[in-house]
Simulated scan of single mutants.
Amino acid sequence: MTTLPVFNGENGNGETPRKVSEIIAALCAGDPEDRITLHDLIHAFGLRAFGLAILVFALPNGIPAPIAPGLSAVLGAPLLLLAAQMLFGLDHPWFPQSWGERSYRRADVAKLLRPAIPVLEKIERYVKPRHARLTGQRGRRLIGGIVLWNALLLSLPIPFGNLLPAWAIILAAFGQVERDGVLVIASLGASVVATGWVWFLVDTSVSILQWIFG
């Protein structure tokens, strides 16, 4: 088991919060045989735990890379739980003990998250705190709703249907972490596009099945 540093500079000690890309890189670095639990992550993420935890679960679906079949559904479950907690106004994420104590090899975590680092670095060039109402206490409920809806879409077993809902979630979570309301607005637009895309895929699949078996 490993002990992660606290990746949060908003703890009253005057430090500048680390960038999201730096936090993800730090999670991927170190002994590949170390094991990381969800409780480790939540503790390490500190005051930004909701947004950072959501990012960790959404990023593997947002970066086109080979992932295990069915991983979207597996990652969708904690996203649904986190989103529901945001909607109900919880201040800190909660996981069932069996989830929180389950450990994962750092090498496996890095395999899923490392491909996202260059993309995150590009996004960070344009990110800054703005439109604070969209990322404050009331805005958190909006972000929770965005994540919940797209996590439902993400959990559907639809080929090619993961990417757009995942990016709607990533933008919302990124906006919450960096207090950037523009990203939250962008996530709303991405949610509309993702919903239309998934609906198109479902409708097309149903039409093909009717043609084959009709």
Rank of each mutant, 00 (worst) to 15 (best):
A190E: 09
P64N: 04
N61I: 00
I54Q: 15
Q210T: 12
E101G: 14
Y126K: 04
L47I: 03
K19A: 14
L59S: 04
R106T: 11
L27H: 00
A26G: 06
G196T: 10
K111I: 00
L148F: 15
S191N: 09
P78I: 09
L134I: 07
L188N: 07
Q85M: 11
L113I: 08
D180H: 09
Q210D: 09
K19D: 15
F200L: 15
I54A: 15
F45L: 05
G12S: 13
L201Q: 10
G181N: 06
M1P: 13
A194D: 07
I36V: 15
R141L: 08
A26T: 05
G144A: 04
W197Y: 13
P78N: 11
R102V: 05
I169F: 10
E10T: 07
A58K: 02
N61L: 11
A26I: 00
V192F: 13
L79Q: 05
L75W: 03
A83G: 10
S207H: 13
H39D: 15
P60R: 03
R114Q: 14
P32Q: 11
A172L: 10
S72A: 15
H92A: 11
P32I: 06
W199Y: 12
V177H: 08
V119I: 13
A77H: 03
G144L: 04
L148K: 02
N150L: 06
N11L: 14
V192E: 05
S155C: 14
F174N: 02
P157I: 02
V74S: 09
A53C: 13
L75E: 08
P115W: 04
G136L: 04
G76T: 07
S98G: 02
A194E: 04
W94L: 14
G189Q: 05
V193T: 08
W167R: 03
A77I: 14
H92C: 02
D108F: 07
A65L: 13
T37N: 07
A110I: 06
R48F: 01
E124N: 07
I67C: 05
D180C: 10
K128T: 14
P165A: 09
L113M: 02
L80A: 13
L52R: 12
S207T: 10
V147Y: 01
V177R: 00
K111N: 11
P64Y: 04
I123A: 14
G145K: 03
E10G: 04
E121N: 11
A29W: 01
R141K: 14
I23F: 02
L183A: 12
G70N: 03
M86W: 03
G161I: 03
R140W: 00
R140D: 07
P159T: 01
V6P: 06
A25D: 12
K128I: 00
L38N: 13
G136C: 12
T2C: 13
L87C: 13
G145L: 05
L152H: 03
I67M: 10
G14S: 09
G175E: 07
S187R: 01
A84W: 10
A65K: 07
L71V: 12
P115F: 01
G139I: 04
F50P: 04
I169R: 01
T195V: 06
N11A: 11
L75H: 09
L148D: 02
L79W: 05
F88R: 11
D180T: 06
S98R: 12
P69V: 06
P17V: 08
